[in-house]
Nucleic acid binder design. Structure first.
Lengths: 345, 345
DNA sequence: GGCGTGCGCGAGAGCGCTCTCACCAGTGTG
DNA sequence: CACACTGGTGAGAGCGCTCTCGCGCACGCC
């Protein structure tokens, strides 16, 4: 398709400006140590010819790509079910763009794909990687570690391997959960239940831990396991009502789960929040605002998480920031959450 | 970080296998015309050394990148508000992966970014582009056309420029809308209203056209304009009830809008579907299944759209398919939709 | 046995860039 | 006035790969 006209090379620009390739290269890469009038001449030639550097040739010698891989491990279908992923991606994209880096997206699907991703990363196509891998038993983190690619994880990797040098960005799931449960307690609720997320993910475990931090002696029957889905929420809520009909508050592991719980409560004739107060997690707009009643929930700044991941990675690559000495090695960050009060609690 | 061990080159593999670079290259690229025992020897050397071809060096000479850009034009916040985007991306990713192509994601934010994207595409970093640009007045398509990069659009580009050679993949928005409205009519409804989407997007226009196809002499007061959001749906529904209190069915431009409409109907004491039947569009899982009552809606196969876009592009690049003569130039595709019956109509 | 034929392989050029190094002013110093 | 010294510039090597070309060899034909 569209036979591209042969693109001008450094050589051509040099000829037109009447200087050497080296000088053009210097100008293109910042222009330090070149006399102003020459810089001018070269710039002009570049514009006239519409010269754009050939990235492949450049990478070949510099061994830099100005590209970062974003790896999303399937079957994180959850990642697709909510805008989480898109928002995070947007944050990442903004930050990378600001530092002239490209975003190479790697979506994995099943086990074979892990090998593919490992190969790709080891292949040195990118300078670093941002990895989303929420499951505890995911082999990806190890694989990546072995590939020797600078990496920042999205969410605390629940991972038994070597922890040294692992950098991640996460929300304060535990703290957010505590806030939610405390809020319910502050409302005078005493039979506060928790519907967990999928416990093979660190975020679910952390939220459960936060619940336990406050409900130190919680009746174990007040904890029902679910999987971050509305259907799971319904099932868990029924269980809960079965075991403890007098439950007066529910902290659900996320908004989707809460929406399922809400529906069961309505079906069984409970008024929310009068009879049972409900709090979710995520502040996932289309869900939290559309439930009946609108959901009180714990918000996390998802886009900021993405941006921060990218920033940490670039810093680790000695880019995107004036190198702050040798000590600039990034470390993990946990972002705060905020309770958003709506009508359900 | 992690000083990468110097990666083995073709040269090294050649030395170890006792053959020339050329032969190694042949083996790595398919191994045609090399005797079996040599192929064997080379493969062994490759494995032992953990050789991975340097893509930059390869691109430098082949002028191929095996990479495709996916451009998502902001402020398509809508794209982020629903799983649409993620699903499409997944479809694209699957197809690209199957043909060993990388996915470079370009998210744009505001006008400056258009220039950036244009520069990037013109810079010949990728072999082709998949572009999502839903707004009628978006300058991006023209820009890309000028960059001379093979492109497939997601959704019919509403675009006044030169149409020749424009390839897109879209859902049958118009046909889906017709099905929905016919279904309502089949239910015996006669006062069928339509809440439109944002009419600066072709999908919204097409759905409106579909509605009009069936409701040829529709009372104009039965059409209310909204913007694909729940809030817009609420507003439009109130308008509608105000103008025509006897409305007995609503076809909303998408599920989000329908959810807003549903809420207003409930508030005003209408029973759904008994008093007013409601149909949405998209079959966006977390919304359509969670509304009360669950939403009847028009489903589009979003992932397939993505996959198809990628397939068309690769075919246009003479890849991913045995070249079917010169006639293999791809043309646009419109995918069918299906009506999903739930409780609301 | 001489000759054409075709296949398998190696030699070598060159893709477009960066970067080191040597060179050539021009300036300041003894 | 000879000397080092500096800062701007060009020459040239080389990054790791692909691909064309030509050579050598085995085969089949006359």
């Amino acid at each position: 398709m569209t036979d591209t006209a042969p693109r001008p090379t450094l050589e051509a620009v040099a000829a037109r400006a009447g200087v050497s390739r080296a000088t053009v290269s210097r100008v293109v890469n910042g222009g330090d140590g070149v006399r102003d009038n020459l810089v001018e001449r070269v710039r002009k030639a570049v514009d006239e010819l519409g010269y754009v550097p050939n990235q492949a040739a450049r990478s070949l010698v510099t061994r830099r790509h100005d590209a970062v891989a974003v790896v999303v491990a399937e079957p994180e279908t959850r990642v697709f079910a909510d805008p989480f992923f898109a928002l995070q991606l947007r944050g990442i994209s903004k930050e990378l763009t600001a530092h002239d880096n490209q975003l190479v997206l790697l979506l994995t699907e099943g086990r074979d794909d892990h090998a593919r991703v490992g190969r790709y990363l080891a292949g040195g196509h990118v300078d670093g990687a941002l990895v989303f891998s929420l499951h505890l038993d995911d082999p990806l983190p190890e694989l990546i570690q072995r590939a020797g690619v600078p990496t920042v994880f999205g969410g605390r990797p629940g991972w038994s391997g070597d922890r040294r040098g692992v950098v991640y960005v996460d929300s304060d799931n535990r703290g957010g959960a505590r806030d939610a449960v405390r809020h319910l307690a502050g409302l005078g609720r005493t039979r506060i239940a928790h519907i967990t997320g999928a416990l093979d993910q660190t975020s679910a475990v952390d939220r459960l831990d936060g619940y336990r931090d406050v409900m130190v002696d919680a009746d174990p029957r007040l904890i029902a396991e679910a999987d971050f889905t509305p259907a799971g929420g319904e099932r868990a809520m029924r269980e809960l009502l079965d075991r403890c009909p007098d439950v007066d508050a529910v902290f659900a592991a996320n908004d989707l789960t809460a929406s399922g719980a809400l529906r069961v409560l309505r079906e069984t004739g409970r008024r929310v929040p009068d009879d049972v107060a409900v709090i979710g997690f995520d502040d996932m707009q289309p869900v939290a605002e559309q439930t009946d009643p609108p959901l009180t929930t714990v918000r996390q700044d998802i886009e900021e998480m993405g941006r921060l991941m990218a920033r940490l990675l670039l810093r680790g690559l000695d880019r995107g920031a004036p190198r702050e000495g040798v000590a600039g090695r990034p470390s993990s960050v946990v972002l705060p959450t905020t309770l958003v009060r709506r009508a359900s609690a």
